[in-house]
Design a protein around this nucleic acid. Structure first.
Lengths: 333, 333
DNA sequence: CGGTTTCATGTAACCGGTTTCAGTCAAAAT
DNA sequence: ATTTTGACTGAAACCGGTTACATGAAACCG
């Protein structure tokens, strides 16, 4: 591996000049610059990032923290890959790399926190983390810019991005209303989670706005997974007055609900209309296709990257970002 | 951030001793060691990885290369997350981190190759790459240990891990045969890909072993995606003698086939039995559930990690690894 | 008891960049 | 002709670790 001194020697200049050619090209004479660049090309010189990081304390790496605990399938964030690709694209466009920092219960909770400090990580993005509240605090305290996805946390250098969950829920309910449904139930996510609570809030709010009665027995809590949607739907089917529509706060649960309805010998959308949330790939594949509230998946990655950069470069911590949601109508409503 | 010299000074020893405490604890006096470790703990000392990498030329980072080109949805490798988690678990168990090196057509093809050299990456894992043949060659030439997933490439420091695709196909065909089916068609993957070719080979081989005639019109090439499976199935349905079973070389295609069969007014499994390949999450969700050949998804990650470590530490390049596949029977057969 | 090991540690060079500061030199200003 | 200016470059310290080699004390040995 060629070093900066070798390259400098070949060009008859000092290492300092070579360094400037790469980091501050404008201050070096055009002729010299050209010569250095072409020789660099020729001998295949590539600056050593470790040396660079050591000197500048900037690693041009962003850490991605996500929980790999097998028991909590939360690590299967529905959009994981799409967030990842949005993030990666935005980052590499700016010359940054992504370092994966998985947490898992068998490790020290601050293992990833240490990694951040040891590697001079410039910023951190957290996906779908649940139980890292305390170490998140220490992370934020450590001064590293930090963006959380779908978890409303803020701090001096900490912000978050989330979908307009309440708004999406309102759209869903309104849509069912315009389709003539009047007994609209909901299967919620865990209400301790941000998205779970917000979607429920939107549902309740829109019911009020439409002048529909708010009936507690029409609200059943699910868990965002298929099986939870299935059992929740069965409970709704046992009601004396069966709902004619359900807003299911997650597509995976909606597929479970679909199955429960089918097993009960009922038809979607004739007997019961369904609207999901997320717009997973799955939603287009089931029969009937699932009407759903789509989230801006690549937007998560892009927005997270933008927020991280704002903090890395600028200074002011950007306010939380809420991504718009849109209705996608398919066969289930 | 505390440095090694500060810590050394606090303990009244030299930096060299502190370094030894962390890298070679046995050679330092137990008393001294304890003292250094506890003071390190107290002041929150963490060794700087950049400095360490600079000195040792080992980064304790493994690069994960995968193609993010949007036009080729290959980056949505169905197992991406599960491979990732297997890989991540195996790596962090050994103190390694994972650096994402996405390729995409808009970048220089060797962008990731450069990143590998600049960051002193110790080893590389490639997922589902297609068109990087030439740069893979240069990567292998550069001497970095390299493990490819599902692509049969070898070299001095390059090996691969793949499923037993041919074996799985044989199991699928045999299963359909025991179910009494005799006109068994197949929808293949692209035969230029390893898995596509191998699964076809297994299909043909098992037909022969069972004494069934080998009829070219029963073999239709697909593309591993849902839409390809759909159109391929339609072609099979147009045959004079319609098959009573299809081995579909990928679950996504199988879902497409399922749809085509449904639209033709036929029933699965009564009229046509289906066996897929992969065991995507999807396979359990469609109606009827898809009988399929399951791949050992976490095994990919674990095996890849094992191969990388073997090359990083030991020396001998491990032989290609073939993971077993298993039959999962659901409603479609 | 002198000489040889062994054990524990320190010294100092090195890894490969960046950056401050000072210096050179030609052109512009006076 | 002298001073000033500005553009460009070089010398050298520094970032925070690792490690070959040297050193000194204690243990061992005949």
């Amino acid at each position: 591996m060629a070093t900066i001194r070798e390259l400098a020697h070949l060009c008859g200049v000092s290492p300092a000049t070579v360094s400037r050619v790469f980091n501050n090209p404008d201050v070096v004479n055009a002729k010299t610059r050209e010569q250095v660049m072409s020789t660099a090309q020729r001998i295949g010189y590539l600056p050593n990032e470790s040396a660079r990081t050591l000197a500048t304390k900037k690693s041009f790496m962003v850490g991605l923290v996500w929980d790999t605990d097998h028991r909590r399938p939360g690590w299967r964030h529905p959009f994981f890959q799409e967030i990842l690709i949005g993030l990666k694209t935005a980052l590499s466009g700016r010359g940054y790399h992504l370092l994966l920092l998985a947490t898992s219960s068998d490790k020290t909770p601050d293992a990833y926190l240490h990694a951040v400090r040891r590697h001079n990580i410039d910023g951190v993005v957290l996906i779908d983390s649940d139980n890292w509240d305390s170490s998140l605090q220490r992370l934020a305290d450590s001064g590293v810019p930090c963006v959380s996805l779908d978890r409303p946390v803020t701090g001096p250098r900490t912000t978050y991005v989330t979908s307009d969950n309440a708004g999406g829920a309102r759209i869903a309910v309104r849509h069912l209303h315009t389709r003539g449904r009047r007994t609209i139930a909901t299967i919620t996510g865990p209400t301790r989670t941000g998205p779970g609570a917000e979607r429920l809030r939107g549902y309740v709010g829109e019911l009020g706005r439409l002048g529909l009665p708010h009936r507690p027995e029409l609200i059943v809590e699910g868990d965002f997974y298929l099986s939870g949607g299935y059992t929740a739907m069965r409970r709704l089917l046992e009601l004396d007055e069966r709902p004619d529509a359900v807003f299911v706060a997650g597509d995976a649960m909606a597929v479970g609900a679909l199955r429960a309805i089918g097993e009960a010998g009922l038809n979607v959308p004739r007997d019961i209309a369904l609207v999901g949330f997320d717009d997973l790939e799955l939603a287009a594949l089931v029969q009937p296709g699932l009407t759903t509230i789509a989230q801006d998946k690549p937007g998560f990655g892009t927005a997270a990257a933008a927020a991280v950069f704002a903090m890395i470069n600028g200074g002011a911590t950007p306010p939380p970002r809420t991504l718009p949601t849109t209705l996608v109508v398919r066969g289930s409503s």
